[in-house]
Amino acid sequence: MSRSARAAVSALLFSTALVFSSPAVQAESFGLGRLATPEEIAAWDIDVRPDGQGLPEGRGGVMTGEEIYQERCASCHGEFGEGSGRWPVLAGGEDTLDTEDPVKTIGSYWPYLSTVFDYVNRAMPFGDAQSLTPDETYAVVAYILYLNDIVEDEEFELSKENFTTVRLPNEVNFIEDARPDTAKVEQAEPCMSDCKAEVEITARARIIDVTPDEDAAD
């Protein structure tokens, strides 16, 4: 057997072995990167899921949360979560989602409480991210629940242990993507000529005229 033929056979054997030995996705290793240590993972792995995976040990109550909220959050989100300027509204908005002016808050819109913990913990306060301790984060989340009347007891304390017992009211109203939800070409071949008799302008942007001035944008 020639050298190249031997190489081909051994390559074939090798690849067959790979196919038989690989469970799900097992591919060639490039030998790059290094193992992450448990300490490194613990420090960076901050995400929290609806089932509670990722929640840190800790607890915090409504009253403590109110103090932290008024100091760290209220300047943007308002004393009662009503929002200041264009900063997000955190509370209220019940029964508005099917109206002309939907108000999407944690109480009216968000499906999962874990999202509040995850987001506050990773991104808030705006410009000073990851500065709250786990206890402080639990407390702020508890206060936001209180602002939304999802908990009514001022003595309520949120903790890793009771976290997943709290459900947000709008969870059931999220549905899967239904697109494509308009006609495809095979259903409606587009018209090319004499498609309509009359055309009228029904709306003009210049009437609203909210286009930024180029000089102002500079």
Binding site: D45, D47, R49, K104, Y112, T115, D118, Y119, A123, F174
Partner: peptide, 14 residues
């Protein structure tokens, strides 16, 4: 992170 379920992060819920 690799997981078995979606996270439902703020940018895919709110």
């Amino acid at each position: 992170e690799v997981g078995d379920e979606p996270w439902h992060a703020r940018e895919e819920t709110s």
